[in-house]
Amino acid sequence: MIAAWFSLWGSLPGWSRILLLNLSKIVAITIPLMLSVAYLTFAERKIIGYMQARIGPNRVGPAGWLQPIADALKLLMKEIIIPTGANKALFVIAPVLSIAPALVAWAVIPFTNHLVLANVNAGLLFAMAITSMGVYGVVIAGWASNSKYAFLGSLRSAAQIVAYEIAMGFALVGVVMASGTLNLRHIVLHQQGTGFWDWYFLPLFPLFLVYFISGVAETNRLPFDVAEGESEIVAGFHVEYSGMAFAVFFLAEYANMILVSALTTVLFLGGWLPPVAVIPFTWVPPLAWFLIKVSTMLFFFIWFRATFPRYRYDQIMRLGWKVLIPITLVWIGVIGTVRFFTPWGYLFH
């Protein structure tokens, strides 16, 4: 049986074999990702529940474990209502534009030293460029809905994302200066040493903070979720969306959260490297370390949501332009000066 499969594989033309291999790799990344998104929503509800001294969802399945599946089924059954006066084509395409970048950027994320779909030289730039396109889904959704609340939400989101992307870009400049490469795999390999004290989050600590805060802002998560702002503009850009169209926005938000956590892990927390390179830690497979780190960052996302009240809009703008961007600029100057004019340049590798 297996031999028959192999002979069939061998008889295929070369290009189709590459195509099939790549397709199966993409499926192997996307399906676990979608499952993690589903269970991230469950984890969020449970964790916030415990933080607020309640137990969270516990009815569907054992201890509530089937809750995300039930939610997905419920949303699939619901009607997608297209409001009158809405721009139909754009209304339908907006959720797709929102989720596509959140999935595409995974192409360059190195899970371990060998487990990466596309090991491109400019991987970091690619990830940034793709994630910067996520805002179109929000902006188009707000405009196409023909609703004032949705429109306000999308305008807020556009201004916010442009502001925080600059801070994010500058934070990444620091990483590129330290590692001297744009290849995400090499950035992790540059952090290899004896343990966590070689990872970039220590020498680049201000940039690490700025990057993560900007990441939270870019994914429109609390305390930066003015694009939704349910106490002010109902549900912001997705007011008019129902059923699966709404669910796709929801999936995109959570997929983006996982993506930002994965990028933070790769850039600042040593990717798949163990925290201390000695025996019991090196036994753990690299992929497990990667997933542990990503989960920790995701926990922070949820923790923020349970802890912080929403920023006022002018406070968001002030934080982005007047606090985060100056911090990154100063630290880029510090990295450059220390590396080339002082004997402590090794601190930044």
């Binding site: 400019a122 730039l125 690619f126 940034m128 460029a129 793709i130 910067s132 396109m133 805002v135 179109y136 902006v139 405009w143 429109f151 999308s154 305008l155 556009a158 201004a159 994302i161 442009v162 992307e165």
Partner: peptide, 21 residues
Amino acid sequence: IVLVLVYVGAVMVLFLFVVMM
């Protein structure tokens, strides 16, 4: 990539911002 990052990711978002209003 920089064309996508700068023009698609930032400039056109601001363009849309204005044009939509």
